[in-house]
Nucleic acid binder design. Structure first.
Lengths: 195, 195
DNA sequence: GCCCTTGTTATACACATGTAAAACAATTTG
DNA sequence: CAAATTGTTTTACATGTGTATAACAAGGGC
């Protein structure tokens, strides 16, 4: 049958399009509802490109996790850097960035929640999540230590758990609380953790 | 071909067996990996019983969510009741029960996390989750109010978010912190929320 | 022991899945 | 303009999916 017309593109363009489409599909349909044909359609290409560029849907999902983690990490780093040298301001900026667009966009939160779901049963995704979570806690520990917090390991666990819990609620029901309320709760927790 | 021998059972026995099998499969394989044949095998019956007793896999998952929520709710109620009349003791008992077996069993946490994943894209599951979350927050608001907390709505949101975040981390990596550490963090948050 | 009820299994069906690779088309080069 | 390169589509394949239901078997009643 007649083939669909297309423009030839470089590998990076195709890979980025497939990654963006995967993030969108994970957000919309969840971890259980995504498929090769769905992602390809969202990327405007045919399904064969998934295997061609990524070796398969699992590797594409893993690459999407890396890309999403890098994006969130860069946004958080930028927020902390923009806060100047004061330790508490940097920590507050870190927290606030979690509840401000683009991180707080429901689609990004939903994509992230889909990775959590996949991590529960997919060892490769679990390894990425462990790595991302450890890096996040290390960053938070450093920010807390700069503020004079004691037992920074446990404090970092507590802060990231609150943020994750608020993210989770927000991705499941954005009407439960506002971003400002989330930020206020987190500041209050910071006060308690730092003393 | 020859049929597998079986014992006839009442409807309640079959439904409970399928619900237990569903919870187990959700825990082990996640929201995206569950199937009618898998659940039936885990329940020791044939796949036809899923449609016979529940109308389909979606209704079976919904019934499993209700059953799991009822079970957790009963465990939490029992813990609070066993704490006696002192408000702070009742609130602490509520929190501690979240991090003690059987609620803190990784399989139960993983099943619960699977429901979160399904809620992101399945309206029926989302409705159940909203209902369960609202009931949980109402109970926590009452416990907080008895302790003299102000702004109990936001405090309840904050407490349940921390508990959910700790549950999530524990279901994804039980080695991150101990149940005792989780309880200590939650108590610290309670101190901050109550003042 | 036979009959009846109904719980249950096995099968069929239509559809969806991920992957592999042949074949084709876009684009560049000479 | 033709040939070569290679990006890309389409197709085929094997397998898995959820649901419906005919047929059968367990077990109770008479």
């Amino acid at each position: 049958m007649a083939r669909a017309p297309f423009h030839r593109e470089g590998e990076a363009v195709r890979r980025d399009a497939l990654i963006a489409a995967t993030a969108q599909c994970l957000a919309t349909h969840g971890a259980g509802g995504i498929s090769v044909r769905m992602v390809a359609a969202a990327a405007g290409v045919s399904a064969g490109l998934v295997t061609h560029y990524f070796g398969g849907i699992d590797d594409l999902i893993a690459a999407t996790y890396h890309a999403t983690g890098d994006r969130i990490g860069a946004l958080l780093d930028a927020a902390v850097d923009a806060a100047g040298p004061a330790p508490r301001a940097r920590l507050s900026a870190y927290v606030e960035a979690n509840f401000r667009p683009p991180i707080s966009d429901p689609e990004l939160l939903a994509t992230w929640a889909a990775f959590w779901a996949l991590a529960g049963s997919n060892p490769a995704i679990a390894a990425i999540r462990d790595s991302v979570a450890a890096a996040t806690r290390a960053q938070v520990e450093a920010l807390l230590a700069a503020c004079g917090a004691r037992e920074t390991r446990l404090a970092a666990i507590g802060l990231t758990a609150l943020i994750d819990g608020l993210w989770l609620e927000r991705s499941l029901n954005p009407a439960t609380f506002s971003a400002a309320e989330a930020g206020a709760l987190a500041e209050r927790w910071l006060d308690a953790l730092i003393g």
